[in-house]
């Protein structure tokens, strides 16, 4: 069972056992990095967030309480770090508008796949932060509805609302760009 396995590895990682540390990093860093990358739209910043998330995790491990799910806690920390960075970006007076990327939503469009990915990434990163988080957790990662809601500290109903708005907004942005 993943949860008890987590607990065992957390205990051993807290004691400084490298094998357990590596196992936790290998298991969770891809999802944390993916979440931060989608939220921030910037690989370098996402790597910084991932590092900060794990540094906080290592500090928390010795006092870890088994009732919390490590994966949920880790994603929540990463998400809050992303929110902080997005807030700072908004506050920056010299902020420049994000690069506009041409995009077509139709799958049969001749748009190059790499460009399509870039455009979708940019569009997700441009969504309101909670919508981007909901979309990333539910549509791009394999989190259950309950887990995604738990990470975001909201109800499943609120998650559904965010998700619907995110998909609608994303579609509108992508359609607008494809028609431009």
């Amino acid at each position: 069972m993943a949860f008890s396995s987590d607990l065992d590895q957390i205990t051993r990682a807290a004691a400084g056992e490298r094998q357990a540390v590596s196992a936790l990093v290998n298991r969770y860093s891809p999802a944390v990095l993916a979440l931060a990358t989608r939220m921030l739209g910037d690989r370098g910043e996402a790597e910084d967030v991932t590092q900060e998330t794990f540094i906080r995790a290592w500090k928390a491990l010795p006092d870890w309480e088994p009732r919390a799910k490590f994966s949920t806690w880790l994603h929540r920390v990463a998400l809050n770090l992303c929110y902080d960075r997005l807030r700072k970006r908004r506050e920056a007076t010299m902020a420049e508008p994000p690069e506009q990327v041409d995009m077509a939503l139709r799958p049969d469009d001749a748009l190059d796949q790499a460009e399509r990915v870039k455009a979708v990434e940019a569009a997700i990163a441009a969504l309101p932060e909670r919508q981007a988080a909901a979309l990333t957790l539910c549509a791009l990662q394999d989190h259950s509805q309950a887990e995604a809601a738990d990470i975001m500290e909201i109800s499943v109903e609120a998650l559904e609302s965010l998700l619907a708005r995110a998909r609608r907004a994303l579609r509108a942005v992508l359609m607008e760009r494809s028609e431009a």
Binding site: A13, A15, G16, E17, R18, V21, S22, V25, N26, S29, P30, L33, A34, T37, R38, A46, E47, T50, Q51, F54, I55, W58, L105, R106, P107, Q113, R116, V117, V120, E121, L135, A139, L140, R167, L170, R171, L174
Partner: peptide
């Protein structure tokens, strides 16, 4: 259409350097 678009997004994988840095940042026994 949206499902296909989102499902086609590539996975984001950490580089070996990032993985090593994350492991190194953990306290040692």
């Amino acid at each position: 259409d949206m499902d296909v678009l989102l499902g086609g997004m590539p996975e984001v994988m950490p580089s070996a350097a990032l993985t090593a840095a994350l492991i190194d940042s953990a306290p040692r026994a």
